[in-house]
Amino acid sequence: MSVRHGLLALLSQGPSYGYQLKVEFERRTGDSWPVNVGQVYNTLDRLERDGLVERGETDGDGHVFYAITESGAAEARSWLEGPVVRGAAARDELAVKLALAVTLPDVDPEAIIHAQRVATIRSLQELTRSKAAGGDPDSPEEFAWQLVVDALIFQAEAEVRWLEHSEARIRRLQARTSAGGAAGGTTASAPRTAPAELPAPTTASVR
């Protein structure tokens, strides 16, 4: 998403000026996405250039009002009604790091998983705590904020599940390769110390 679509959606409710748009945008997204007023003006300029909004009157206080055009309204509608497509998902840093780690002989991918899991769970705990401590969910601002926090909570949860899934896959692979390889391999119940730290990430040349 962009601020651009958010402003268009707001302007589809009626003409407004820059500062008012900034305040409304932040309020309606539960203050989860602060924007500065300069960013709003730049976006309005681009929307005007693209014919999606028109500059209207200036009021007594010098506020320049912008109104949505017909093609702007169509754009706002199609953004609201269309699905969000997440383009860069395949380039998730964590997934790439783990994929590389599995191929590097002196890196323990399970250590990466453990360190990440502790960190992700901790942020999940923080999000949960701030949600639990939140105010009255009947106020529109609080409700908007909680929707956004929920999204972050579900994303963190998904990451933990993926980490566990990956750990299980890696262990299964290791069990298979060690069963086929040298004798006297470690059994699944052999004591194993938990790696406390990530191996230094820059040991191997990854270029």
Binding site: L124, T128, A132, F154, E157, S189, R192
Partner: peptide
Amino acid sequence: ARHAAWADRIVFLRDGR
């Protein structure tokens, strides 16, 4: 994990440890 996050501490077990 979403439910575990309500806890003060989260302990992970593997093979009984």
